[in-house]
Amino acid sequence: MKLSGEQVIELHGFNNLTKTLSFNMYDICYTKTKEEREAYIEYIDEQYNATRLTEILNHVSEIIGAHVLNVSKQDYVPQGASVTLLVSEGPITEVPTEHLAETPGPLPKSIVDHLDKSHITVHTYPEYHPQEGICTFRADIDVSTCGEISPLKALNYLIHSFDTDIMTMDYRVRGFTRDKTGKKLFIDHEINSIQNYIPDNVKEDYHMIDVNVYQEHIFHTKCKLKNFDLNNYLFGYTKEKLSEKEQMTITKQLKKEMDEIFYGKNMGVEF
């Protein structure tokens, strides 16, 4: 096992460290009518069905160096889906070096991907505001691995698998493993921020905040898209169909929704 740089640590037995990446992503949309809202939910349900989610999980397993043993998937009525992949840890030497850097999370329904002592889960939560026409689609992804496999290798792929307005990421290393002399090792790689595993071109697009507890090996990063174009948040039409007053009102509602999700608290009407 390489702990830092080219330093090689010989372990006593299996690497028992558990590395967990929790990834939340949010897609926000404005729907003017009930029919538009229903059409948006139907679109999301089709876009992130069980088949699409299975493809995403298969790629995640490949990137982190896992071998898929079994696949179970199910689409639900009226909406939602579940996928389960049983996998085992593959030889680390087979992981392509270009995948060692990053990956955020997908936007599917409900997924569980198991390694022998590890798992990958995805759950999706579409919802809408009862009065203001705001629709929010949230996906939760958890990648938890044991041994030398790292969930951070999948971060970049997950980020690029979905269009997202808000991302929240948590990474934690738990437990310990022992070197040949019996000394405990509580982490087996260097990290000071999840941002280390996010490409520069992605970081340029987001406002990012870190909250890290280094001594506990806990890392938290949240991201909010910098640029705002109202056309990207309207479903089925463009802002040219709206009056200036409507554009201003909808823009304020959408930005308020994004700020509340990003900062994790309710805000007043004016901000």
Rank of each mutant, 00 (worst) to 15 (best):
T54S: 09
M267V: 05
D200F: 09
P78C: 07
P108S: 11
E42I: 00
P96K: 09
E10R: 06
K184F: 12
K2T: 03
T238P: 03
V60H: 03
P130E: 10
D75P: 14
I159N: 04
D179H: 05
T249C: 06
V71C: 06
T221L: 13
L230F: 12
E240R: 10
L85F: 03
F235H: 11
V83R: 03
F162Y: 11
S161G: 01
V202Q: 05
F271D: 02
T168I: 14
V83T: 11
V8P: 00
V211H: 09
M258Y: 00
H99K: 08
E148D: 09
K252I: 00
K241N: 13
E62Y: 12
K117A: 09
S82P: 05
I187V: 14
I92P: 00
L152N: 02
Y43M: 05
N196D: 12
M167E: 04
V87Y: 08
N196M: 15
V68N: 08
R178N: 07
D210R: 14
M25N: 15
L85R: 05
K2H: 08
N192Y: 13
E216F: 10
A139T: 10
R52K: 13
K153I: 00
E216G: 04
V122L: 04
E270S: 06
F186N: 00
E89I: 02
M248Y: 05
R172K: 14
H114K: 08
K183T: 11
N24R: 07
R178C: 15
F162G: 07
K224P: 01
C135G: 07
L21N: 14
K265C: 02
Y40R: 09
Q253D: 01
L254Q: 06
K73Q: 15
Y76E: 08
T238A: 12
Y76G: 00
V202N: 01
A50L: 06
S88L: 07
A50Y: 05
T20L: 12
G175K: 07
K180C: 04
D200R: 08
D142I: 15
Q247N: 14
R172S: 07
R37Y: 12
V211R: 04
P104D: 05
C135P: 07
L57I: 13
E240C: 05
V213M: 06
E246N: 08
T249S: 02
A39W: 04
I63C: 02
P108L: 12
A139F: 02
P151K: 12
T181F: 15
T51W: 00
E132M: 06
D205N: 08
E270F: 12
R52F: 14
L17P: 09
D170M: 05
K34F: 04
H129C: 10
D27G: 15
Y237T: 06
N266S: 13
T97Q: 02
